[in-house]
Write a protein that binds this DNA or RNA. Structure first.
Length: 556
DNA sequence: AATCTTTCCAACCGCTGCGGA
DNA sequence: TTCCGCAGCGGTTGGAAAGAT
């Protein structure tokens, strides 16, 4: 399949050749200042020739002059784009090589949606190409309920590295990805991938995270109000930014806590796998004694771990995918970090998760063992299987695919055990994360002290406090509320009595309303009556501020 | 074979930053 | 200092091809 740009060009040209340049109106257009109609739509070969000729003579730049000097009825923007994406020399056509794909993933983890900058690292590739590739990729991953980044992700928290990277990758005046939205240039470490080199062919599904800096996890993953949740994409983030100030504690975590009602599509993983067509030297060794990374411990969290909604089932019809960079780390980390084989002290948490892992693992052996994405698909399959097993014992009915992630009943039942005066919403995501996520590489988050407070953005102190306070050891991971779902977010009324929490929650509610109102609430409203009632009773939704939302968002 | 769905990609649009007047 | 134009960037859209049913 792999249509190449050449193919497209040929097709386009053949089509356009019928559509003569004089037939400009067919593609629409706009008037220039001089009244000339600027053509839109696909470029013809004749136009290409004109543009190439012009650039040869005059060089790149001054694109608005192209129209004047060459008679080309295209706006400067269009000319620049055409040149940059198709006509300039040394453009590499065709599918991305595995190496390029790997690099893109790496770069995206570091840069976010900085396509142009990524393109600079990929000779012959255009930002548009990379962007399209990435968007396609995340669609696939989302559909499969998979995280966006491979597990063998590591953080390099050394200041040396920060400095060097800051110096080399982000020139003067440039902001690093995590700064781009927050305007906060704290000493956040860069996120680095360990190379997915061939020598990792034996890499199990439990890559160690020796380089994970606890402080970086705290400051980036949760503490940083933006690093963890920077959403390089548009609308929702824009809306979120508008309400950012209303979220003193949660920061971006709210967006991360957006529910995913259907995290696993029914799409056969093999189908997806085929569509990936990748061959990362990554082997989810089914024989390894590593529990299914998610093990049901944090059911429903994975799609959230993408930082995205399932694309296969848009919520409210208008939910757009949000391109995560690694800045989604709270969610991403929760998934990725859950992948590694837990340290001994964390085993309990895994043990207590549904025992589907072994069977799931065995059932979902990646036949190809061919790479990261295979592994991810493998994992998705495992989770899907596990999810269905859990459903058989769960009476909770949820809208859409909510029932697939049936973590809520457990959470409901055991939430009270926490006796945490801080509300689920009032509790920082870090705390939630800490409780829901097994320690990494033998380092429990509980052990992570806010030793780098200077680098912690304002408000993170609260988070850190909670992180310190919440001790996950020995707790049943499954008991942790699934804050990745709005019903869980709404859960628990006790903490609402805490005035401060209630206040925060009120503000938060406003923000959520802003964020989700049109998109999610209507969907959530569709919870079957019984389930809704159950949820409402169990979660104290009667007083749920969601009901203060616009009518469309109110739950029946 | 027909129809529907998904994937891919080129191109457009809006926004932002920068530099010059 | 402000305004304006330009270049560039990122998000989104629309249409064609490919694949699935």
């Amino acid at each position: 399949m792999n249509r190449t740009t050449n193919d497209s060009d040929n097709i386009m040209v053949s089509k356009d050749q019928v559509d003569s340049p004089s037939n400009e109106g067919s593609s629409g257009g706009s008037l220039t200042g001089g009244g000339q109609v600027l053509k839109k739509g696909p470029w013809t070969s004749a136009e290409d020739a004109i543009l190439v000729d012009y650039v040869k003579k005059h060089g790149e730049g001054n694109w608005n002059a192209v129209q004047k000097h060459s008679g080309l009825s295209r706006c400067g923007k269009s000319c620049r784009l055409r040149w940059a994406n198709h006509l300039r020399p040394n453009l590499k056509k065709g599918a991305f090589t595995p190496e390029e794909e790997q690099l893109i993933i790496e770069l995206h983890a570091r840069m976010g949606n900085k396509w142009a900058r990524m393109a600079a690292q990929l000779p012959g590739r255009t930002d548009n190409e990379i962007k399209n590739y990435w968007n396609t990729r995340i669609k696939r991953l989302q559909r499969a309920g998979l995280p966006l980044y491979p597990p063998n992700l590591s953080y390099q928290a050394s200041s040396e590295n920060q400095q060097s990277q800051t110096a080399t990758e982000y020139g003067h005046g440039e902001k690093r990805p995590n700064e781009l939205l927050q305007g906060n240039t704290s000493d956040l470490p860069d996120v680095m991938f360990e190379s997915l080199n061939a020598h990792q062919g034996a890499l199990s599904y439990a890559p160690p995270f020796p380089d994970i800096s606890v402080s970086s996890m705290l400051t980036q993953g949760f503490g940083s109000q933006n690093y963890g949740f920077m959403n390089p994409m548009g609308n929702r983030m824009k809306r979120f930014r508008e309400s950012e100030t209303l979220l003193p504690v949660f920061d971006g975590s709210v967006s991360s806590a957006l529910p995913t009602f259907q995290q696993f599509s029914d799409e056969p993983s093999e189908k997806i796998r085929r569509s990936f067509g990748l061959g990362y030297p990554y082997d989810p060794d089914p024989s390894s004694e590593i529990p299914t990374p998610f093990g049901g411990a944090v059911p429903g969290s994975h799609a959230l771990s993408n930082g995205n909604f399932s694309a296969s089932r848009p919520l409210g019809g208008t939910v757009k995918m949000e391109l995560p960079s690694l800045q989604y780390s709270e969610t991403d980390l929760s998934s990725w970090f859950a992948c590694p084989s837990p340290p001994p002290e964390a085993i309990d948490s895994y043990i207590q998760s549904p025992p589907a892992t072994a069977s799931v693992q065995s059932e979902c052996v990646s036949p190809r063992n061919s790479g990261l994405l295979d592994a991810l698909l493998h994992e998705a399959q495992a989770r899907k299987t596990q999810s269905s097993e859990k459903n058989s014992s769960s009476s909770v009915v949820a809208p859409g695919g909510m029932a697939e992630s049936s973590g809520l009943p457990l959470c409901e039942a055991e939430w009270e055990e926490y006796n945490d005066p801080i509300s689920p919403l009032g509790r920082p995501a870090a705390s939630v994360f800490n409780e829901c996520t097994p320690p990494v590489s033998g380092v429990s988050l509980d052990e992570l002290q806010p030793s780098k407070e200077p680098s912690v953005p304002a408000g993170s102190d609260i988070m850190l406090e909670h992180v310190s306070a919440s001790n996950m050891e020995g707790r049943d991971i499954s008991a942790c509320p699934d804050f990745l779902r709005p019903d869980a977010l709404l859960g628990g009324s006790d903490w609402l009595e805490n005035s401060q929490t209630a206040k925060e929650y009120s503000t938060l509610n406003d923000a959520i309303a802003t964020l989700l109102g049109e998109d999610l609430c209507s969907e959530f409203k569709d919870v079957p009556a019984g389930a809704s009632s159950t949820l409402s009773q169990g979660l104290g939704l009667d007083s749920c501020p969601w009901n203060n939302m616009p009518r469309a968002c109110q739950m029946s």
